[in-house]
Design a protein around this nucleic acid. Structure first.
Length: 449
RNA sequence: GGCGGCAUAGCCAAGUGGUAAGGCAAGGGUCUGCAAAACCCUCAUACCCCGGUUCGAAUCCGGGUGCUGCCUCCA
């Protein structure tokens, strides 16, 4: 398989650390609010990667974390008068439900920051021992300028960043670029003991600690949304390799594109968010998933109502096609035609090579459509043999499994009610988008088509 | 201000040197008691603009224009 590596900016062949095995880590969510369609995109993309790798014969270990302790969680919990870990646990539960609805398989390991404190402390200790970090008045900081490769992933130099815009002024730092590994607790804050004082981890260190803990140095793929390239992943590389003394942290870096609402990136701070939960009220999870897979994973995806309509129609076609195959397995006892077998195997090989090419889902989906059309055409010309429909069904289902679009029977079961909602859904979501964006021109552009 | 990305039909979208995949929508047809589904046909002399390289460019180079991401928490 070939993947686009952010660090080298090239599409390269994936050569695993250990033959036949892939170790991958993807930055998960900070559960302080409901997940939106952007979070869903990232989860679906890496779920697809994981499914494809498994399909291609690799033994995959997939780790994805929960940042269940951070400033926003603490703030929100305080506002609501509950414990921070209770708040994050609640949103983790919601997230799991949302992901299940999108047919995202649970990662093999889902570490939480609150359960990884010792690993984090150990890692910080190694970084300090290697003289890449220092203890200050309000925490432990990583000394960015001591790490010469800093900036390679995001393609910027430390000097550019300094001359650049606003860098937080903090007297406790030796250099404005330095970032916190450990933040000392204020009285009353949730905290853990450490050799440097009571406190909690900084944001970046957790992912280094958890990925290294579960996958070891030099694991294969580290992924996340592209907005994490800087500073999060840049910092991860710096602190990890500062601790690893020359060993490589990660072999390949992958980043998925953002979901935009209108022209802008969807984000909680901009308030232009469409949550997975809201969408699930209107669309089947499988339709949402198909919508997300219609675009290459690296490109920005502009949220579009008409796009959901198209995905709905397309998923309908897939589900109907599978039902058709299932309904006609007893068609005849004739032997399978050679050409028909070629049709099936040819489809699978095209499908496979499309996904092997940096997860080209657009092309993979084009093959799926072509396959459906050809099988249907054959069926309109002559009766299919039972062995042929069985073969076509097996072929089709294996492709849908890789895409995570295999919950067709569930779709068909609820078909009539879903279709009744289809038109209505477009209107309802358009209204919600209007509220989210608050601009008529943007809304109409989202409705185009 | 610094560093990136993108620009393909009404809409979504693939395609990194060899003459424009696929889907949605639309129009026409076959089938059908009607409808739906299914099947067939049509639908970009053309890839933001201007130059250049080449036998040949959506694809490479230069210059524009437009949109956008990161530089702050972020998927």
């Amino acid at each position: 398989m070939w993947i686009h590596d952010t660090l080298t900016r090239k599409t390269v062949e994936l050569v695993p650390r250990e033959p036949g095995r892939i170790a991958m880590y993807v930055c998960g969510v900070t559960p302080y609010a409901s997940a939106h369609i952007g979070h869903a995109r990232t989860a679906v993309v890496y779920d697809l990667l994981r499914r494809y790798l498994r399909y291609a014969g690799y033994a995959v270990t997939y780790v994805s974390n929960y940042t269940d302790i951070d400033d926003k969680i603490i703030q929100r919990a305080q506002d609501q008068g509950i414990a921070p870990l209770d708040l994050s646990a609640r949103y983790i539960g919601e997230y799991l439900e949302d992901m299940a609805s999108l047919n995202v398989l649970p990662p093999d390991i889902t570490p939480r920051v609150s359960e990884s404190i010792q690993d984090i402390i150990d890692l910080i200790g190694r970084i300090i021992a290697n003289a890449y970090a220092y203890v200050s008045s309000d925490g432990v900081y990583f000394a960015v300028r001591k790490f010469s490769r800093y900036g390679r992933l995001s393609g910027r130099s430390v000097d550019e960043m300094r001359s650049g815009a606003r860098v937080e002024v903090n007297e406790a730092k030796e250099d404005p670029l330095d970032f916190a590994l450990w933040k000392f607790a204020k009285p009353g804050d949730i905290s853990w003991d450490s050799p440097w004082g009571k406190g909690r981890p900084g944001w970046h260190i957790e992912c280094s600690a958890m990925s290294l803990r579960h996958l070891g140095a030099g694991f294969d793929i580290h992924g996340g949304g592209e907005d994490l390239i800087f500073p999060h992943h840049e910092n991860e590389i710096a602190q990890s390799e500062a601790a690893l003394e020359g060993q490589q942290f990660v072999r390949y870096w992958m980043h998925s594109g953002m979901v935009n609402m209108g022209a802008e990136k969807m984000s909680k701070s901009l308030g232009n968010v469409m949550t997975v939960h809201e969408l699930l009220e209107q669309y089947p999870g499988q339709v949402i998933r198909l919508y997300l897979l219609q675009t290459s994973y690296e490109k920005p995806l502009k949220f579009s109502i008409s796009g959901f309509g198209q995905a709905f129609t397309n998923y309908e076609r897939m589900a109907e096609f599978e039902a058709f195959l299932q309904g006609s397995t007893q068609a005849s006892n004739a032997d399978a035609d050679v050409e028909f077998e070629k049709l099936c195997s040819g489809f699978l090989s095209e499908f496979d090579s499309s996904l092997a090419d940096n997860l080209n889902t657009s092309r993979a989906l084009a093959s799926v459509h072509e396959f459906m059309t050809r099988v249907r055409y054959t069926a309109s010309e002559r009766a299919l043999a039972g062995s042929e429909t069985a073969r076509a069904l097996e072929t089709f289902r294996s492709a849908l499994w890789v895409l995570g679009l295999d919950q067709t029977s569930d779709y068909m079961t609820r078909k009539s009610s879903l279709l009744a909602k289809k038109q209505d859904a477009l209107t309802v979501v358009a209204t919600e988008v209007g509220a989210a964006v608050g601009d008529r021109d943007s809304v109409s552009s989202l409705l185009d088509g």
